[in-house]
Amino acid sequence: MNHAASENILVDTPDKSCFIPLNDKVSQAVLAIQQATNWQDKYRQIMLVGKVLAPLNETFKVEAAQVKGCESQAWLYHYQEADKHFFCADSDSRIVKGLIAILLDATHGKTSAEITSFDLERYFSHLGLSGQLSPSRTNGVTALANAIKQFAAT
């Protein structure tokens, strides 16, 4: 079943092809973020990984799919097959789109149990991103992680 982010309601959603497994480039970029030695390199890598995600068709950039709590506009869709959860997301901000890609690398195609036990703070600490993001971006990425967890819990 396909759902959009806002209130877990059924809306017109992208077809199943939007929810394909992530490109290996996403995992490679996340590794590059982890290995970057300074914030400027990490920031550049975050923006680059966002370019790997396919853009969401304008038709699906609707209010019902918006993640509330993000300063930038971000849209999130969910598809579940058996106990695996798949996501399709986009943002109007390059840095937020990169943060979405990082989150999806950790949650896309995972089980409900894996997603609900996902620790965003520990994950970002592991990548060297803790304390590096502005409070508004931290709130936004937390809202995205919470929306992903909410989908996995239903």
Rank of each mutant, 00 (worst) to 15 (best):
L10I: 13
V11L: 04
D12Y: 12
D12T: 15
P14G: 02
P14R: 02
P14Y: 03
D15I: 08
D15E: 11
D15K: 08
S17Y: 11
C18F: 15
C18L: 14
C18G: 11
C18V: 10
I20P: 00
I20C: 11
I20T: 11
L22N: 10
L22R: 12
L22C: 10
D24Q: 14
K25L: 12
K25S: 15
K25H: 12
V26F: 04
S27H: 10
A29V: 06
A29L: 04
V30R: 10
V30W: 13
V30Q: 14
I33A: 04
I33M: 06
I33F: 04
Q35V: 11
Q35K: 15
A36S: 15
A36R: 02
A36H: 01
A36K: 02
T37C: 12
T37R: 15
N38Q: 14
N38A: 11
W39V: 06
W39Y: 05
W39M: 08
Q40T: 13
Q40D: 12
D41Q: 14
D41R: 10
Y43F: 14
Y43D: 14
Q45F: 09
Q45P: 05
Q45S: 07
I46K: 02
M47D: 04
L48D: 11
L48N: 13
L48Y: 07
L48I: 03
L48P: 03
V49M: 14
G50T: 07
G50D: 04
K51I: 00
K51N: 02
V52Q: 07
V52H: 07
V52F: 06
L53G: 07
A54Q: 12
P55T: 09
P55Q: 11
P55D: 12
L56N: 02
N57I: 07
T59Y: 05
T59F: 07
T59P: 00
F60I: 06
F60T: 13
F60G: 05
F60M: 12
F60D: 08
K61P: 11
K61L: 10
K61Q: 15
V62D: 06
V62S: 06
V62K: 12
V62E: 09
V62Q: 14
E63W: 07
E63N: 12
A64S: 13
A64D: 10
A64E: 10
A65W: 03
A65T: 00
A65S: 08
A65F: 00
A65N: 05
Q66S: 11
Q66K: 14
Q66G: 10
C70S: 09
C70Y: 02
S72Q: 05
Q73I: 01
Q73A: 03
A74N: 06
A74P: 03
A74G: 08
W75E: 06
W75V: 06
L76K: 01
Y77H: 12
H78I: 00
H78F: 03
Y79L: 08
Q80P: 00
E81D: 09
A82D: 03
A82E: 07
K84T: 01
H85F: 01
H85G: 01
H85D: 04
H85M: 02
F86R: 04
F86L: 04
F86H: 13
F87P: 00
F87R: 00
F87K: 00
F87I: 01
F87C: 00
C88R: 00
